[in-house]
Nucleic acid binder design. Structure first.
Length: 568
RNA sequence: GUUCCAGUAGCUCAGCUGGAUAGAGCAAUGCCCUUCUAAGGCAUCGGUCCGGGGUUCGAAUCCCUGCUGGGACACCA
């Protein structure tokens, strides 16, 4: 609706001979109106006129939808809206959430969750790409994009060499390491936890022992060259590891259209190289590609595509993946939801892809901030290690359990799990995507104030009322109080909230909106008793309000991949 | 060394393309449950928006500069 009015205003300005983008903002002085326009000062500067006179010219032309119009200060236009116009809008959105969804040009997008390492368990850092990635995927779907999500596991490279060398050192499954073995290869039997430990011990050993590291490199290179037995062994390990990775992603409500990884891109490397080869040159034994541009103000090192031992590196696989995605999906855009620290790397890969014409798609790295500890440095557990994501989930889950009412018995586990994920997701999505934030277990387990449980608690109240009333199709007939009006005006901002979210690829606008809407509702809830209202017209409108607020919260929680509960 | 990002209340963070008195949550203090879930509501307290210049009617926001913190800078991913 506000968008519609903005377009109307832009056309009106054109009639008056002005050219300017119009944004309607919620008024910062509520006593002067619901909304404000700040364009007159800008117009005055641009066209060398008096801002108040410009404002007056605009005000004269406004149609019936604008009411209580006034010009204040240096040229602010304040106004309210025609009540019927507002009510029509709200009632149309009562059951149809699409009314609040901005109209955006459709596109096909591949979204890449940025390579959880197949040999290791997910750690807290992976939570961000999971939460942000999944929410962006859902937001994309909401605005009508064709979204293809890919977990894109890091299932090739040194971690493979690490694990295999560890198995070899342990003296287990030795037939895989015997080139003359002719018999039947056993299938391996490790748990994901064991693999994690094995990786850790190999990693420590190799970084302290150059000989061991050399062995790791050799095995890695062997796999890279396509050594069948090694590949066979490694793929089994990836499969084991994937199970636990998938479990955690499932808990976080992540949906993947593709559960692929670097291994899947392997077969596309020759075709990719065919296009990239003309741009490669030798440097210190490796094959690299220049990605500098004339307009660069910063240093742009060449991209290393083939290592000096002839093996591939992550850039090789990423380029091959881009090639493959172009061939298979022909996307308009590819989004990488990966830690900010890789921004230079992605810049190089993107440029290389454009130069070698691997894809027509626009490539974007939507980086997110690092999770730091209270000391401002990357988060570590007390023993100096990295906290596993599953450990974090369990930690929050235990705290939720303590907080839950004892009379919730059936479905208790399910409710607990949903509250846990809501707590984590809301806290994680609350700050702007690109900023680093401090991971404070206290903050992440807080259930008071601006948190996931607060929103879910509001949902419980809303549902409780809706379930107790018989009729289902309510209409908002009138607006009787300032509390109701505040809620409705907030809802008119939703369209621009979603627009900003998809523009900036950040979910903080949505978490913010959810909190504001929930707060306004809770205020209303504490002021009026809905079900005992005797004025039937009022009650109908109250229930209409409940319905529309519920629909908004419900749909937005769905975008954030947070499940709601009926009680808590 | 080069470069990118950040610095807003005691703490954790918002603040959209410059707009009218700078916002939340937590923490602190005091109220509100015979009422649709008190994981709630209300109120109070709390700020040289890192320092210094500049641009203009107007700057937390844009530009320059200094300080502080963090990241990245090819054979790891």
């Amino acid at each position: 609706m506000l968008k519609e009015l903005e377009i109307y205003l832009e056309n009106l300005l054109k009639e008056l001979g002005y050219e300017e983008k119009v944004t309607i903002l919620a008024s910062s002085k509520k006593e002067l109106g619901w909304y404000q326009l700040n364009i007159c000062m800008a117009l005055a500067k641009k066209y060398h006129e008096n801002p108040v006179l410009v404002a007056n010219k605009i005000v004269e032309k406004l149609d019936y939808r604008f009411t209580s119009v006034n010009v204040a200060g240096p040229g602010f236009i304040n106004f309210k809206l025609d009540e019927k116009y507002l009510l029509d809008y709200l009632n149309s959105g009562l059951t149809n959430f699409k009314v609040f969804v901005p109209n955006i040009t459709k596109k096909k997008v591949v979204i890449d969750f940025g390579g959880a390492n197949a040999a290791k368990a997910l750690h807290v850092g992976h939570m961000r790409s999971a939460n942000i990635g999944e929410a962006l995927r859902r937001l994309g779907v909401l605005v009508g994009y064709d979204m293809i999500s890919d977990v894109h596991l890091g299932d090739l490279g040194r971690q493979a060499g690490m694990l295999l060398s560890e198995i070899k050192k342990r003296g287990e499954y030795l037939e895989y390491f015997d080139p003359n073995f002719k018999g039947e290869y056993r299938s391996v039997d490790y748990t994901p936890t064991e693999l994690g430990k094995m990786y850790a011990s190999a990693n420590i050993a190799a970084s302290n022992d150059e000989e061991r590291m050399e062995e790791v490199r050799e095995i890695t290179a062997e796999i890279d060259k396509g050594n069948k037995t090694y590949l066979n062994l490694w793929k089994q390990l990836v499969a084991i590891s994937s199970i636990s990775i998938k479990e955690v992603y499932d808990e976080l409500n992540c949906h993947f259209d593709l559960f692929e990884g670097e291994l899947d891109a392997f077969k596309d490397i020759p075709a990719m190289l065919k296009k990239v080869n003309p741009y490669l040159y030798e440097s210190n034994g490796a094959m690299v590609m220049d990605v500098k541009e004339e307009s660069d103000t910063k240093e742009m090192p060449p991209l290393l595509v083939i290592k000096k031992d002839g093996a591939t590196i992550y850039a090789t696989r990423d380029l091959a993946t881009i090639y493959s995605r172009e061939e298979r999906f022909n996307p308009d855009e590819i989004w990488y939801v990966v830690d900010n620290r890789q921004s230079l790397y992605f810049e190089q890969v993107f440029r290389a892809s454009y130069i070698a014409n691997l894809t027509d798609a626009k490539l974007y790295h939507f980086g997110f901030g690092t999770i730091n500890g209270t000391d401002g440095k990357p988060y570590k557990t007390r023993d100096g290690g990295v906290m596993q994501l599953s450990t974090l989930i369990e930690l929050i889950s235990n705290l939720i359990e303590e907080k839950m009412k004892p009379d919730i018995i059936d479905d208790r586990l399910n409710i607990k799990n949903k509250l846990t994920i809501a707590t984590l997701k809301y806290a994680d999505l609350m700050s702007y995507r690109a900023t680093d934030y401090i991971f404070d277990p206290v903050k992440f387990s807080s259930f008071d104030g601006k948190t996931g449980p607060y929103i879910l608690y509001t949902v419980v109240r809303l549902k409780s009322i809706l379930n107790k009333s018989v009729k289902k199709d309510y209409k908002i007939l009138s607006i009787n109080s300032i509390e109701e009006l505040d809620i409705y005006l907030k809802i008119t901002e939703l369209e621009s909230v979603l627009e900003r979210s998809i523009r900036d690829k950040s979910l903080n606008y949505i978490t913010d909106f959810l909190f504001e809407l929930a707060s306004l509702f809770n205020k209303f809830y504490n002021t009026y008793h809905i079900l005992s209202e005797t004025d039937e017209t009022k009650k109908e409108s109250f229930l209409g309000l409940i319905t529309i607020v519920y629909n908004c919260i419900h749909n937005l929680l769905n975008v954030l991949a947070i499940d709601e509960v009926d009680r808590m």
